[in-house]
């Protein structure tokens, strides 16, 4: 895969650190006018999600990680694995719960997602920033009840629970921001 030197480090680059695939988040060049140059590098461990900050001497290098983002279509889950397909090659990949993590609650069949492959196997699944999901369960709205800021919990078709305005009811389709888990509005599709 080759190596990258500290002066080539860019945000988003995937490298191996202590045997773990990592994404570079930030690379700061630090140098006293008359002294040793360093690079303070922030990296996210793509296995654990943990963020590291490590100091390198400028000019050190790290091995590139075989990590690639692929656009795929979410097919279905069999309870143990989540199945995805590359739309061009029809090649299918199965991701375990470690790779899918909390994002399982945003996966709707046939949605386009980003699957990150590490050495060819799914490492992480990123849903679209916004998904449209149907409300399958919620209390009937009570007029004038604003004690919770005028919201109530609603269970969506994927199992996610989000706060929605009181006037919504079962069967409505809502748009949710998957990065914050917040209700964005009623879907234009509903």
């Amino acid at each position: 895969m080759g190596t990258y030197s500290t002066n080539e480090f860019r945000s988003g680059m995937k490298v191996m650190l202590d045997g773990e695939p990592c994404a570079i988040l930030d690379n700061e060049f630090v140098k006293p006018g008359k002294g040793q140059a360093f690079n303070r590098v922030k990296l996210r461990n793509l296995n654990s999600g943990r963020v590291w900050e490590r100091t390198f001497k400028s000019g050190e290098s790290l091995e590139a990680a075989d990590v690639m983002d692929h656009d795929m279509e979410y097919l279905y889950t069999d309870g143990e694995f989540w199945h995805f397909m590359e739309p061009n090659t029809f090649e299918q990949h199965q991701a375990d719960s470690k790779a899918v993590g909390d994002n399982a609650k945003w996966l709707k069949e046939q949605d386009k997602v980003v699957v990150t492959l590490y050495n060819g196997a799914p490492l992480a699944v990123t849903p679209p920033n916004h998904v449209d999901l149907e409300i399958v369960d919620t209390d009937p709205g009570v007029k004038g009840d604003t004690a919770n800021g005028g919201t109530k919990p609603a269970t969506l078709s994927t199992g996610a629970v989000v706060k929605v305005p009181l006037f919504l009811s079962i069967g409505d389709v809502v748009r949710v921001d998957t990065r914050t888990g917040e209700y964005q509005g009623r879907s234009k599709e509903s």
Binding site: P32, G35, Q36, W52, E53, R54, T55, E60
Partner: peptide, 18 residues
């Protein structure tokens, strides 16, 4: 700092601390 290299030059460590 999280440092995984070594050096026996004291000025390098003084630079890290500064």
């Amino acid at each position: 700092s999280d440092i995984h290299w070594d050096d026996d030059d004291r000025d390098v460590w003084l630079d890290v601390l500064m």
